[in-house]
Amino acid sequence: MTETRASELELDIIKEILNIGLARAADSFATVAKDKVLLKVPDIQLIKVEDLLKLVAKYENTHTIIQSDIKGDLNGATLMLFSQEHIVRLSEVCLNLKNVKKGELNSMQESLLLEISNIITGALVTQLANILKANIYGSPPKAPKNYVADSLKDILVQHPLFQPLVFTVITQFTNNSKVIQLPLLLFFDTSTLLKILNIIKTFEFTKSNFLDK
């Protein structure tokens, strides 16, 4: 297998494109969070499949993971990671629940997490489609009942040339001056990375090329 490579400039451009999409997603999430929301891409890396599975597995026992798949011309997925503390705080802020206890999700809480993932992934996908002129859409989010790393492994083994491009996104919002951060993993497969790089090569490298989208 020939390793997929991207220059620092190309990775910076991908990161900037994603940040533009996330800005729109942040505005949408703000209506649910009822306060200021900031989403940004702090890191971008190409990693091996086994490392991705280890990364996801690390969160399995401590976080509720919501998965949304990105399909169409580009293929990928988002995983939103909600700790017990996140769920309690979001339940208080977004659902006006009082004295929320940590533990198993009730139907209202699960619906809230699914809706947050749907809002963020949907807004991000819409912006990516606009900027990259691609036909893509997000599938309805789901909360896998089994181990996410196992379900991802089943998908990845069907694509032996898969080398994920992983972005870590910090979803941050404030409520009563308290900052809450939710980790989000966004990853694309090798084929999608190559498509994005080819699209980028058609860009004129000026800020107005995609900052005005």
Results as ranks from 00 to 15, higher is better:
Met1Gly: 15
Thr2Ser: 10
Glu3His: 09
Thr4Tyr: 05
Thr4Glu: 12
Thr4Trp: 04
Arg5Leu: 14
Ser7Leu: 08
Glu8His: 11
Asp12Tyr: 02
Asp12Arg: 09
Ile14Glu: 01
Ile14Asn: 00
Ile14Ser: 03
Ile17Thr: 02
Asn19Ser: 12
Ile20His: 02
Ile20Phe: 07
Ala23Trp: 02
Ala26Arg: 00
Ala30Cys: 00
Ala30Thr: 00
Thr31Tyr: 11
Thr31Phe: 11
Lys34Thr: 05
Asp35Leu: 06
Val41Leu: 08
Gln45Met: 11
Gln45Glu: 15
Lys48Gln: 14
Lys48Val: 09
Asp51Val: 08
Leu52Trp: 03
Leu53Pro: 04
Leu53Arg: 07
Lys54Val: 04
Leu55Ser: 10
Ala57Glu: 13
Lys58Val: 03
Tyr59Leu: 07
Glu60Tyr: 06
Glu60Trp: 06
Asn61Leu: 10
Thr62Asp: 11
His63Ser: 10
Thr64Gly: 01
Gln67Asn: 13
Ile70His: 01
Lys71Pro: 01
Lys71Ala: 11
Gly72Ile: 02
Asp73Lys: 03
Ala77Met: 13
Leu79Arg: 06
Met80Val: 09
Met80Asn: 10
Phe82Met: 05
Ser83Pro: 06
His86Leu: 08
Val88Trp: 02
Val88Ile: 15
Val93His: 07
Cys94Asp: 05
Leu95Val: 08
Lys98Ser: 09
Lys98His: 08
Lys98Ile: 10
Val100Trp: 00
Lys102Asn: 09
Gly103Ile: 08
Leu105Pro: 05
Leu105His: 04
Met108Gln: 10
Met108Asn: 09
Leu112Gln: 01
Asn118Arg: 04
Ile119Gln: 02
Thr121Glu: 08
Thr121Asp: 06
Leu124Asp: 01
Leu124Glu: 00
Leu128Met: 14
Asn130Trp: 06
Asn130Met: 09
Asn135Asp: 14
Tyr137His: 10
Tyr137Phe: 12
Gly138Thr: 13
Ser139Leu: 15
Pro140Val: 10
Pro144Trp: 02
Asn146Gly: 15
Asn146Ser: 15
Tyr147Gly: 03
Asp150Ile: 12
Ser151Pro: 03
Ser151Met: 12
Lys153Ser: 14
Asp154Pro: 03
Ile155Lys: 13
Leu161Trp: 09
Gln163Cys: 04
Phe173Glu: 04
Asn176Gly: 10
Lys178Trp: 06
Val179Gln: 11
Ile180Ala: 00
Leu184Arg: 06
Phe187Cys: 05
Phe187Arg: 06
Phe187Gln: 05
Phe187Ala: 01
Ser191Trp: 03
Thr192Ser: 15
Leu197Asn: 02
Ile199Glu: 11
Ile200His: 02
Lys201Asn: 15
Lys201His: 13
Thr206Ala: 13
Thr206Gly: 09
Thr206Glu: 15
Ser208Ala: 12
Asn209Arg: 11
Phe210Ala: 04
Phe210Val: 01
Phe210Arg: 03
Leu211Gly: 01
Lys213Asp: 13
